[in-house]
């Protein structure tokens, strides 16, 4: 494990220290930070990869210690993975995940959204994309009402008085009402 908290020993040459919003320090291997574009850029800008440069702790004010712990777990698992490619179509469109990822992200939506914010802040594209796919897989095939529940969406549309099906309030409301009736993924029986 390259993650230790808190650290009082002298910082090794190939590590940096990050500080979570609740004040906990984490020692991060520079190799792991390569997966985070935010940290990698910071290290490059401050030349923290040089042995003769003093490395100040990096404050991560938007990330709690629990989130940081989870992030480090992800970074450790993907330590030896090839560099993330944005255009990896096969990977980015599939709803199939490796077992470790499924277990890692088997968390409530609220926690996942927090993790997402952390991944977005640290700019970890593989984690970000994976959470997107996981979230898409959770709403694929669901009706509008089910998606509202899953994503905690406050509705701003009215329901059709006869069918109870949501309709839009813009000019195409009648068409959408009709389409919803027949297109709902799980239509009720006649």
């Amino acid at each position: 494990m390259s993650c230790e908290e808190p650290t009082t020993s002298p910082t090794p040459e190939n590590n940096i220290t990050v500080v979570s919003s609740d004040g906990k320090e984490f020692l991060l291997d520079l190799k792991l930070t390569e997966q985070s574009e935010t940290l990698a850029r910071l290290i490059s800008n401050f030349e923290y990869d040089r042995t003769d440069v003093k490395k100040d702790p990096v404050p991560l004010g938007n990330i709690t210690s629990a989130q940081m712990q989870k992030i480090i777990e992800w970074l450790q698992h993907h330590r030896y993975y090839p560099k993330w490619e944005q255009n990896d179509i096969h990977y980015s469109t599939s709803f199939t995940f490796e077992t470790w990822v499924e277990e890692y992200l088997n968390i409530p939506n609220n926690e996942m959204f927090e993790l997402l914010n952390a991944a977005n802040y640290l700019n970890i594209p593989r984690l970000f994309s994976t959470i997107c796919r996981i979230m898409a897989s959770r709403i694929t095939g669901k009706s509008a009402e089910q998606i509202r529940t899953v994503l905690n969406i406050k509705t701003d549309v009215k329901n059709d008085v006869y069918t109870g099906i949501p309709i839009q309030e813009d000019s195409s409301s009648s068409e959408d009402g009709m389409s919803e009736i027949s297109l709902s993924p799980s239509p009720p029986p006649i």
Partner: peptide, 21 residues
């Protein structure tokens, strides 16, 4: 990014949840 991964009908369902969606 989530929307990019949705099929046509799931997109349609998500569209029906709110005006912003």
């Amino acid at each position: 990014n989530v929307v990019e991964h949705l099929d046509l009908m799931s997109r349609h369902s998500l569209k029906s949840t709110s005006t912003s969606n």
